[in-house]
Simulated scan of single mutants.
Amino acid sequence: MAPISLILSFFLFISPALSTNSEGNALHALRSRFKDPTNVLQSWDPTLVNPCTWFHVTCDSNNHVIRLDLGNSNISGTLGPEVGQLQHLQYLELYMNDISGKIPKELGNLKSLVSMDMYQNKLEGEIPKSFANLKSLKFLRLNNNKLTGSIPRELTTLSDLKVFDVSNNGLCGTIPVDGPFRSFPMESFENNKLNGPELQGLVPYDFGC
């Protein structure tokens, strides 16, 4: 019978591979939703245990996926809940593509996320309230899409948020004025159906939403 120390060593050895494999599975599920006419994702091979060897994927020293760079990659399709499994992701770059459909609420699970750039796509539906869970988020750019509904008031709790751009969408209601929204320029909200900043001290009403 093998000593307990050897058994523990075996599990410690394979655990990083198992965790990265789950991230690889999530990325491959994402790939299956995309149309990729220029073969940008051809290196995303699901038979490889470690997705850190794939192009446009960056990992940390523990082989966790921390960055996904697919900006301006001529891809189309939709996003799915599997993206929320990339628990260590810090940078999600999907800007200037042809991605459509709704933004999955599971993106709110990416607690390490610092930057989310999904501008200039065809995303529709509402901004998920679950984004309020992204306490490390500093940059959120969703401009030039087809988003509707109001700006979630829950986002006013994101104290680290430095850049917020939702211009050129179909958003309605009023603009929050609390938390980081005190410092965002009006250009971040232009070309929507917004009624302007809400009044201090009054409960916001989203007339017309």
Rank of each mutant, 00 (worst) to 15 (best):
N39P: 04
C52M: 11
D60A: 09
L18H: 04
V65L: 02
E23R: 06
D69L: 09
L68N: 05
P37Q: 13
N63T: 10
R31W: 00
V65D: 02
E23N: 11
G71C: 04
S73H: 04
K35I: 14
P46D: 04
R31Q: 11
D45S: 14
H64D: 12
G77W: 06
N74M: 05
L70C: 05
V65R: 02
V49G: 05
H56S: 13
E82V: 01
A29S: 14
S19C: 08
D69A: 14
V40I: 15
G24H: 03
G80H: 06
I75S: 02
S22Q: 14
D45A: 12
P81H: 06
S43F: 01
S43Y: 01
H64W: 07
T78E: 10
T58M: 04
C52V: 09
A26E: 04
T20L: 03
F34A: 07
G71F: 02
P51N: 06
N63F: 07
D36H: 08
N63K: 13
N63R: 12
N62W: 00
K35V: 15
S22K: 12
L30P: 01
G80A: 11
G71H: 05
R33K: 13
L48N: 05
L48R: 08
R33A: 05
S32Y: 01
L30N: 03
I75Y: 01
L30F: 15
L68T: 05
Q42N: 12
L18P: 00
C52H: 09
H56C: 05
C52W: 06
I75C: 04
R31T: 00
V83C: 03
C59M: 03
S32L: 14
V40W: 10
H64E: 13
H56L: 08
E82L: 00
T20S: 15
H28P: 00
H64K: 15
T58E: 07
V40P: 08
R67A: 12
N74D: 10
L48I: 02
L68I: 10
C52T: 11
S76H: 11
L27R: 04
I66Q: 02
